[in-house]
């Protein structure tokens, strides 16, 4: 099921959350809306779901205008940031809810509902928690219940709002890989919101980078990473900028090479302000003559060879830099 967003604008009072957004999401893909907080990504997701009404513009599902459709009729699965599990219901009752509230003629039999719930709980690998209440579950388990509940109604699209936001780092990683595999299995068009670039790049087929209510770039993860469309995307995906060399250069911290001496290659000098050891890599913060700070990332071996200390001067050569036309 494809989703088409046509010139959607949304204001909250004086604050403009979305400015004339156009986006088409092809069917069966896993798409991430990536951006800092306040970029409008959650608002866009809620508008797709029908939980928020756009001030202008339209939403099309499979070419059909759904703007006037209520959230109830849109047949979207929505996974809320804090899961919004029904706290007075067991896991089973939560997942069965969407099946039970269907009009009688569309409703499955009791045993049909039961089978379907168990099938879903097996799919999300928590069938052993069926009689538990939400408060008895861990964050990761709640997330899976929320997903199973959303999938139970066989949604045309699956929408996830910061699906891993409330989880700790290890569970996040596990769960996002699992989500990727799950998507490969069920292939329902999915859109998820995240502020974590690593998450977006790792999991999704298409990344939509948003900022201040606008879309900055749409593309495959490699595309967006290797060919950022503008300084914002570059910066948001972990790039640094170096001004006046002679033009501004945009590079990634690991693409800067350091040496004790200038070897005739164009670059700049900087004083090592701080050194952070971070697993297999070392992060350095350089201060240039003009006061600009530049992050550099080198591997442990080169760091050892350079024998750098804080306060020492070093020559840096940005490689692979990009130039953006404004």
């Amino acid at each position: 099921m494809s989703i088409e967003i046509r010139s959607v604008t949304k204001n909250f009072g004086k604050h403009c959350a979305l400015k004339n957004i156009d986006l088409s999401i092809p069917g069966g893909e896993l798409v991430s809306l990536l951006g800092p907080s306040g970029s409008g990504k959650t608002t866009l997701l809620r508008i797709i779901a029908g939980l928020e009404a756009p001030d202008s513009g339209s939403i099309l599902f499979h070419g059909e205008d759904a703007t006037k459709q209520s959230a109830r009729d849109r047949k979207v699965g929505f996974v809320f940031q804090n899961y919004a599990l029904f706290r007075h219901m067991t896991v089973f009752e939560n997942v069965a809810f969407g099946l039970k509230v269907k009009p009688r003629r569309d409703r499955l039999s009791k045993s049909g509902i039961r089978d379907k719930v168990f099938q879903l709980l097996k799919l999300v690998q928590i069938d052993w928690l069926v009689d538990h209440y939400p408060f008895q579950l861990s964050g990761g388990q709640r997330q899976r219940v929320a997903l199973a509940r959303a999938l139970a109604v066989e949604p045309r699209v699956l929408l996830l709002d910061e699906p891993f936001g409330a989880l700790d780092a290890k569970v996040r990683k596990e769960l996002r890989r699992w989500l990727r595999r799950l998507h490969d299995e069920i292939h329902v068009t999915s859109v998820f919101v995240t502020h974590d670039q690593e998450e977006a790049l790792e999991v999704s087929d298409i990344v939509v980078v948003m900022n201040e209510g606008q879309i900055e770039q749409v593309g495959a993860p490699d595309d967006v990473y290797d060919h950022p469309a503008n300084p914002f995307v570059h910066g948001f995906l972990g790039g640094v900028s170096i001004h006046g060399l002679p033009a501004s250069a945009y590079v990634r911290p690991h693409e800067i090479e350091l040496s004790r001496k200038r070897n005739g290659v164009p670059g700049f000098y900087g004083v090592v302000k701080y050194i952070f050891r971070k697993g297999t890599t070392v992060h350095l913060e350089l201060e240039r003559d003009n006061g600009e700070c530049v992050d550099v990332e080198i591997d442990r071996d080169s760091f050892r060879d350079l024998e750098l200390k804080e306060g020492e001067k070093v020559h840096a050569v940005p490689g692979n830099s990009r130039v953006f036309s404004n």
Binding site: A49, G50, L51, S70, A71, R72, R74, K75, V76, G77, F78, F80, N82, A84, L85, F86, R87, F97, G98, V101, K102, R149, A150, A152, V153
Partner: peptide, 20 residues
Amino acid sequence: DEEEAATTLGARGWQTFFRI
């Protein structure tokens, strides 16, 4: 949140009220 979740799952107004 819970009421919105119920709505996206297809519940009608009175179903949302009485069940959630």
